[in-house]
Design a protein around this nucleic acid. Structure first.
Lengths: 211, 211
DNA sequence: TAGGAAACCTAGCAACGCTATATATGATGC
DNA sequence: GCATCATATATAGCGTTGCTAGGTTTCCTA
């Protein structure tokens, strides 16, 4: 039972360092979680550093030790959002059984944006972000977009442009819906028409790239 | 030369009231103009009430007398933006000589968004806005969207949905371009492909209803 | 020309993001 | 076990923000 006491000092130091790292990451997750919760319930303007510090029962400088600024916190939330969006799209693509991959991915995208409006908002409102094809771009962003890229892969020489347009359409629908710029209750029809636009029945083999 | 002095009192009061109204509107325009200029040059975070009051050489409460809050100022700028966007789209539609109305309107839309990024940003970032089909919706918003509606009028029973999707696509492209989420230098190809998607030829409609 | 309304400014509040500095906590060497 | 030192955390404050109560000036009217 005195095992740990007799342990090699270097190993003990390792365990301690690991524990500290875990604590740190746990607190980081706590901060991000609190930010998301408050944003979703009360809007991003209520996500203040003071409020967050009260929420996790630490002083403000602790938050600045984790993320360098308030924007850093929002950026971390945004990255988490892209990760989850990527997972949701991947899941939708894999689970599709009706041969309508484009449709189910589109539905999943809009469902994500609608069910977490504040999260979706912050994913695109941060203006000081790195370009998407930059080396510094977080892999979470690439991952999310790659799910859309795969949808049209090899369909045409312009498959990349098609993917970009598809993404833009989804993003536009999500944003205009969130901002209440669209008449209500036609969302299903909108998605259906969108899918038709992006589904190409040519002589040459079209859309479905099962994989 | 003593004409005005002997003028009917009621008329004199009228002239004075009119002049005051003119002054008021001129100052209102000054504020909006200053806000736009600063936003475009230094970003919206630098558009503070203090800064604006210094810019027009009036104290802060004067600004609050015109617009009730900082957000009120941004909203006024946004409305002005929608007005100008509507005009730009109308012009593009009327000037089109190549029979490619959809294309020239799309180009005009993206040109507008690209040349005034801060203006375009504020037009869609105000979350607390009235729904688009509400009675309280400023006519400028309706006007802008009506330009897009006309584009597809009568082309299909779903012309309204098509218009909404077209708008969403344009908005998505504008936003993703502004946020640098798109690879550079393919904008022309993007627009061309978009126009193809939204152009329905009488003989062979590219959209075949999928089941 | 007196009086009153309208226009305008001064000064200040509470809350914000952020940080220099002080204090407590906990691991390490003797 | 104790002293030491680094690391972790808190206190307190700076400058700036949006916004407003209250006093002052300006200008129209009678």
């Amino acid at each position: 039972m005195l095992y740990f006491l007799s342990m090699e000092p270097a190993l003990a130091a390792n365990r301690i360092a690991e524990r500290k790292l875990r604590d740190r990451q746990a607190r980081r997750a706590q901060i991000i979680g609190a930010a998301r919760r408050i944003a979703e319930l009360e809007g991003w303007s209520n996500v203040t550093v003071r409020r967050l510090s009260a929420e996790i029962s630490y002083s403000q400088p602790v938050l600045y030790g984790h993320f360098g600024s308030r924007e850093g916190i929002l950026a971390a939330v945004a990255v988490e959002g892209f990760h989850e969006l990527g997972l949701a799209l991947e899941k939708a693509q894999k689970r599709d059984k009706r041969g309508n991959t484009v449709g189910s991915v589109a539905a999943a995208y809009l469902e994500f944006a609608a069910s977490s409006p504040a999260l979706y908002e912050v994913m695109f409102s941060l203006s000081l972000n790195v370009p998407f094809d930059d080396v510094a771009t977080p892999p979470e962003l690439r991952f999310a977009f790659s799910q859309l890229l795969e949808l049209f892969q090899g369909q045409s020489p312009k498959s990349e442009v098609i993917s970009e347009l598809f993404w833009a359409s989804l993003h536009g629908i999500a944003e205009l819906t969130r901002a209440k710029r669209f008449p209500r209750g036609r969302q299903k029809e909108r998605v259906k028409t969108l899918v038709e636009l992006f589904t190409f029945h040519d002589k040459t083999p079209p859309i479905v790239k099962a994989r």
